[in-house]
Write a protein that binds this DNA or RNA. Structure first.
Length: 548
DNA sequence: GAGTTTGAAACT
DNA sequence: CAGTTTCAAACTC
């Protein structure tokens, strides 16, 4: 089909590849990417605005939308490393004829530039940004929803799934629906299957087997499929890529709790949980793929993780870092930043007493001196060059860490709100005391910035290192427990009793086991934050308002 | 790795 | 809107 790829590519680079006849506005690949700068800029602005608008719209939806726009195709490829599940480099396309400017291209469809791809004549890069933006505009013109997620929420929920159905589909529905004819919607050709969702009324597929209760689908997800592992990975990717949202699976605390609190109740929810537990029969980490022997309770306890792990992949840090932890971290960094600037503040206060009068006298003297040469040297030269300027600006301007607000560096609204009071104060002080103009202090401001940045980054690095350490510990524990689990199950099967440790081979379940890993981000935040939030009422009250 | 199959996207 | 073609990924061998 793709005969003469290279010749095609070569021709594409030198000669028109597409017929000039265009009933519908099309991308012009022929005119040396010839979009007039102005038109290109306009197109770019339009396209960018359109995409941003879509992103903004998407962010308002209940769908957990990834930062990058994704198409089902891009979702299909493992963005996460198969071995360890860690984020992996963006998928690389192999486009040959689309120049990566059509939705055929995963990168383009994902709204990202090609980077390290194997594509030919790629225009989906910075060098061809104008063309790219035009293509985006055209694509949006053709289909305003082109870059929007194709999987939306559906009325389906975990409660709707019947207890007797063995498979477990993610919550969601393909907005447009698939049109499969030969794949039975059980292969990755099918967008619904790719996204690990059931086909819906939106689909126009033929001979669909991707529905709740489908034997074929059940077989596929029950471990007796040769490609079960890949399907597992696919499901994990689907869960991870944000198309569905994190709440689609059993990750809620209540569910976790109930899952552990066997035997199950009789409510619909409990039944659903029970059903989820039954999914263990396709334990991805056990090649046998058979349900572990033992009583139902034991099987459910042991199997729940396996079953859910097949469909839910949760990063190692999933339960370590919570939203409030991020907030805490930000508070910490604000405190660290303030502390970093404090020496400058202290020094200023100390030295200001001794030098303020002298400086002002000198300045006044220079200003009052009507001699041109003196005037030039006395103020601008002294203060705008070298160490003198640094010294003075440091002394007179950096009386408070909040002065960094006066620099050109952009700050978050939260931080601005935090420091607005101080800014007003400083401004008034500066005006009242006849302090020199701001530009005279830029250098020292930068100096403080540098110190603050250093401290903040150091602190942040430390936190990240601790986070990594935690994850490693967790990972090692998973590994050892998985080995134990596998060893015991291969010999005599898991024996669960009240006191025995439940072998958990699933990272998903392990991460849910708060008893085993009572990890909280708070645990490794430095004590500084504790002080700042408990002893320093001012900082605490202000940082609480940080818009995180 | 090459060839085939598949279904979405693009086009008529 | 329906039919056809193009395209790149998924799949098979």
């Amino acid at each position: 089909m793709e005969s003469g790829v290279q010749s095609n590519a070569a021709a594409a680079a030198t000669a028109p590849e597409f017929p000039p006849k265009k009933l519908v506005r099309q991308l012009d690949f022929t005119a040396n990417f010839g979009t007039p700068p102005a038109a290109a800029a306009q197109s770019q602005a339009h396209a960018t605005a359109a995409m941003q608008s879509q992103l903004a719209t998407a962010s308002r939806t209940s769908i957990s939308m990834p930062l990058k726009i994704e198409s089902p195709r891009s979702r299909s490829r493992p963005v996460y490393d198969v071995k360890d599940g860690t984020p992996k480099k963006q998928k690389q396309c192999n486009c040959k004829h689309s120049r990566c400017l059509k939705l055929y291209c995963e990168c383009f469809a994902s709204g990202v530039h090609c980077d390290g791809c194997n594509c030919v004549n790629c225009c989906n890069n910075v060098e061809n940004e104008a063309v790219r933006q035009e293509a985006v505009g055209l694509t949006l013109e053709r289909n305003p929803n082109a870059f929007r997620p194709k999987i939306g929420n559906s009325p389906h929920s975990i409660r709707d799934i019947r207890e007797d159905s063995a498979e477990f589909a993610l919550v969601g529905k393909h907005n447009k629906g698939c049109h499969c004819k030969k794949s039975n919607c059980l292969k990755k050709y099918c967008e619904c299957f790719q996204a690990n969702i059931l086909c819906s009324e939106n689909c126009k597929c033929i001979d669909c087997k991707n529905f709740d209760g489908s034997e074929e689908r059940r077989a596929l997800f029950h471990g007796d499929h040769p490609n079960n592992l890949s399907y597992m990975q696919q499901a994990a990717n689907a869960a991870l890529n944000g198309a569905i949202g994190s709440s689609g699976y059993v990750s809620s605390p209540s569910l976790k709790k109930k899952l552990k609190g066997l035997p199950f109740g009789t409510s619909a929810k409990d039944q659903a949980i029970h059903r989820v537990a039954q999914l263990n029969q396709a334990n991805p980490l056990k090649t046998s793929g058979t349900a572990p022997p033992g009583n139902p309770v034991a099987r459910a306890v042991n199997s729940a993780p396996s079953g859910s792990s097949k469909l839910v992949y949760r990063p190692l840090l999933a339960d370590i870092v919570q939203p409030e932890d991020v907030k805490e971290l930000c508070k910490l960094l604000v405190v660290v930043s303030a502390e970093a600037a404090k020496p400058f503040s202290d020094r200023k206060i100390h030295e200001e007493k001794h030098k303020e009068k002298v400086d002002q006298t000198e300045s006044f003297h220079a200003l009052s001196n009507q001699d041109g040469d003196h005037n030039k040297k006395a103020l601008p030269d002294d203060r705008s060059s070298g160490t003198t300027a640094d010294k003075m600006s440091t002394e007179e301007f950096m009386s408070d860490s909040t002065d960094m607000q006066k620099g050109s560096r952009p700050m978050s609204p939260g931080t601005l709100a935090l420091m607005c009071d101080e800014q007003d104060t400083m401004l008034m002080t500066s005006q009242n005391t006849g302090a020199p103009p701001r530009f005279l202090y830029d250098q020292s401001v930068t100096e403080v910035y540098a110190e603050q940045e250093r401290c903040v980054l150091t602190e942040f690095r430390d936190c990240l290192q601790k986070l990594i350490t935690r994850a490693k510990v967790k990972e090692e524990k998973y590994a050892s427990m998985a080995m134990k689990s596998e060893a015991s199950s291969s010999q005599q099967g898991p024996v669960i009793n009240g006191n025995a440790t439940v072998p958990m081979s699933s990272p998903a379940e392990l991460s849910r086991s708060s008893n085993t890993f009572p990890i909280s981000f708070h645990n490794f935040l430095p004590p500084k934050l504790g002080r700042s939030t408990t002893e320093n009422g001012n900082i605490d009250s202000k940082t609480e308002n940080l818009d995180l």
